[in-house]
Design a protein around this nucleic acid. Structure first.
Lengths: 162, 162
DNA sequence: CTTGCAGAAACAGGTACCTGCATCTTACAG
DNA sequence: CTGTAAGATGCAGGTACCTGTTTCTGCAAG
């Protein structure tokens, strides 16, 4: 810990913190995810499980890895959710099981029915519910999708031997 | 609410999913939080711990509950992070410990030094890194802060006895 | 055929959040 | 003083993610 220029920097103020976009995104993400979690709890669904339901309803045949990329989670986490939902009878595999084998999935009738119930719950959290003026939600959604469409940064672990 | 209109709705398409703002927020939140997690891993900090560092650096004397509200986590989770950081020597309590006693906290010299290192790491994830055009990050940040400034919705558990 | 490599899935273990509850302080009303 | 309520902290236990690793498939080159 050499007293470089960093140590001589003044302590950041709260306003500075608010200027960091990624930090704001994380905070809003936590708040919104908790809103969704609370509203889906009555249906026994986590936000991730709702995502599995929604994507599989829109595009039957997706496999675990595709779901993971769509949901912004790891393939291992997708497996956790999928396994629980298969055990619950919400979906079933259309392909062979086993390591290495790509296994598409489809919703069961129960899965479609639950999606019909859960969809309005999540879709009903409109602009007003999150404190936005009408119209701003569209702008916000568009900007956020720009982020999702951007290629994932490889996180650049260390600038040691760049 | 048996086979109401919900069951007769057609399966939602992928485009419909993209229209749900809260769902987009959750996905972007996951991606961005992973970016921050990766970049802070070298400093042994989680995003929450970075938040503790940043807020305590900007406003010394904050207690656990205040930190929890600022970070959008539970007070119990704030305690987990704070305890680990105290054990690590990054901060210390300025008030008395114990149940019920409000205990403000301050960064140690080591905490200030680490904040000086971690701050540019997070602040350096600029608009381009998240795939936004210059200027759009400011707009996005402003809209997200509108959400944070809105009062928390009580999640409206069930419309049974409204 | 064999070899090599990327992708998908399964398994094991870790952890950073969470919920639920108990305890204590503080503020306010009587 | 007593009683009530809200807020803050502490403790116990659960869980939904994560990382790391292994196994298998599919495709391409030799």
């Amino acid at each position: 810990m050499p007293d470089s220029a960093f140590d001589r920097r003044p302590a950041p103020s709260e306003g500075d913190i608010d200027d960091i976009l990624v930090w704001t995104v994380i905070r809003v993400g936590r708040r919104v995810e908790r809103m969704v979690t609370d509203r889906l709890a009555g249906h026994g669904l986590t936000p991730v499980q709702f995502g599995v339901l929604a994507y599989l309803g829109a595009r039957p045949g997706m496999n675990q890895s595709e779901l993971a990329r769509a949901l912004q989670i790891r393939p291992q986490s997708a497996r956790d959710a999928v396994t629980a939902m298969i055990d619950r009878g919400l979906l079933h595999r259309t392909g062979p099981e086993g390591r290495g084998r790509r296994s598409g999935m489809q919703l069961t009738d129960a899965g479609h029915a639950l999606l019909g119930l859960a969809w309005p719950v999540v879709a009903g959290i409109d602009a007003q519910a999150v404190g936005l003026a009408p119209g701003d939600d569209v702008t916000l959604n568009r900007l956020l999708h720009t982020v999702l469409d951007a290629p994932a940064q490889p996180s650049r672990p260390a600038p040691t031997a760049g």
